[in-house]
Design a protein around this nucleic acid. Structure first.
Lengths: 148, 148
DNA sequence: CTTTTTTGTCAAGCTGCTTGCCTACTGGCA
DNA sequence: TGCCAGTAGGCAAGCAGCTTGACAAAAAAG
């Protein structure tokens, strides 16, 4: 592996990641959720099944609990989530998606699928599957960082 | 291409990009440049050949000239770059790498090569080359965004 | 020469995060 | 049961990195 190939790896990987994020976000905005940020999507993936506490969300997003709390403030103000009392822990509060939050989550999934189809059209489905599998072997199973 | 495969694409691509950035940055820090940020590397790639003006740098980084100017302030304070008078344009100033700036650039290249070798060890060189080539076909030739 | 555009910087402000501190509540332990 | 260290989450303040707006100096266009 020559040095210039290593440089190329960095460039193309980052460009592809940026293009994917931008594409998904554009698709979500086009579906009417123009007050959403890419970071919201990362939160939604944690909240989607059954909700989560602020601490859970903070750990998932790799930020402080305060930052997670502020993000939930914003999401609640925009009608994507709501805070509920936690069923068993009186200290904690359960953050759950509203119907609008679910709709936005579905929109993001559709946008991601659309982007994947576009890329499948470029490479072919089989080769894109290989690419996903290879990236999966390279990517550590740690946290996603919603810096976008 | 099923929807869950599209979701997987997003996750693994972002994880891989994060891992690469983190790995390169860790390598740069380990080589003694502990006051550098990943964003600096993106600036260096533009400054490396023969320097650049603030406007050039701002366009390359996709930020305002003011932001680029502030970044150069920081880099100059840390000894990575210096401002010179522009040879032909009296308004502009040419920002060039210092010797320390060049050393940091080389360190980043080494760290990137090291990361690529690690990944080549996982996938094999040939398959990593295919991955780079495929990503290159997917990634638009636009600007890198140094948000990391 | 006059006018318009471009360059870099000063100043102010915004956003998203951090740290420090606090109260309410939990769960282990005597 | 009562006590107390640990945990959850919100308030306040601060900081880093970016933006917008305005400006003087120089270049380019007329």
């Amino acid at each position: 592996m020559r040095d210039d190939e290593a440089q190329a790896l960095t460039v193309v990987l980052l460009r592809a990641a940026n293009a994917l994020i931008d594409g998904i976000h554009a698709g979500v905005v086009a579906r009417g959720f123009d007050d959403s940020r890419p970071a919201h999507g990362f939160a939604f993936t944690r909240l989607a099944p059954d909700g989560a506490t602020i601490s859970d969300l903070a750990a998932h997003l790799n930020v402080t609990r305060q930052a997670a709390s502020q993000l939930v403030d914003e999401l609640a103000a925009k009608g994507y989530v709501e805070r509920r009392t936690h069923p068993v822990d009186g200290r904690a509060r359960l953050v759950v998606l509203t119907e609008r939050g679910w709709a936005c989550t579905r929109a993001a999934e559709q946008a991601a699928a659309e982007q994947a189809r576009t890329w499948a059209g470029v490479l072919g489905e089989d080769r894109l599957r290989v690419l996903i599998a290879d990236l999966a072997r390279l990517a550590p199973p740690g946290r996603l960082r919603p810096v976008w």
